[in-house]
């Protein structure tokens, strides 16, 4: 019963997200409005964590399944994929390393600076 109530809460927020998507003329998926809304409700302690927690983790655990139909759609988009195959492969491989490097170096630099700052204060 508890899980069902949690599911109802999450469905309710998903519905509000869907409504916001229709009201706000921005290319932001309804699920993003819902996610931000749920986060704000949890952070403001309007909703206790226990009102969504177990069902939320279960849905996340099963999420990869929900991508299968879209992935299988590649067979339908095969011609289109072949036309841009090289850019797709470059974006998925080389750019991934560039993003990893940019994030990692920025983080390490900022964390190092902070640590030096703390040491100078001592």
């Amino acid at each position: 019963m508890k899980r069902l109530v949690q599911f109802v809460v999450i469905l309710g927020i998903s519905f509000v997200g869907e409504v916001l998507d229709r009201l706000i003329p921005l290319p932001i998926p309804g699920s993003i409005y819902g996610m931000v809304l749920l986060f704000l409700l949890l952070a403001a302690r309007v909703l206790p964590l226990g009102s969504v927690r177990e069902t939320a983790h279960l849905l996340i655990k099963w999420m990869p399944l929900m991508f299968i139909p879209a992935l299988v759609g590649v067979m339908d988009a095969w011609g289109e994929l072949m036309k841009i195959l090289v850019p797709v492969l470059i974006a998925s491989s080389i750019v991934t390393f560039l993003v990893m490097g940019a994030t990692g170096w920025t983080a390490q630099w900022m964390l190092g600076r902070k640590r030096r700052g703390e040491r100078n204060r001592d």
């Binding site: 998903s14 699920s31 819902g34 996610m35 949890l42 849905l59 929900m66």
Partner: peptide, 13 residues
């Protein structure tokens, strides 16, 4: 998928 994505707010929190 939408309820699952909404649920990502939980681990974030």
């Amino acid at each position: 998928l939408t309820p699952a994505t909404v649920s990502l707010a939980v681990p974030l929190y």
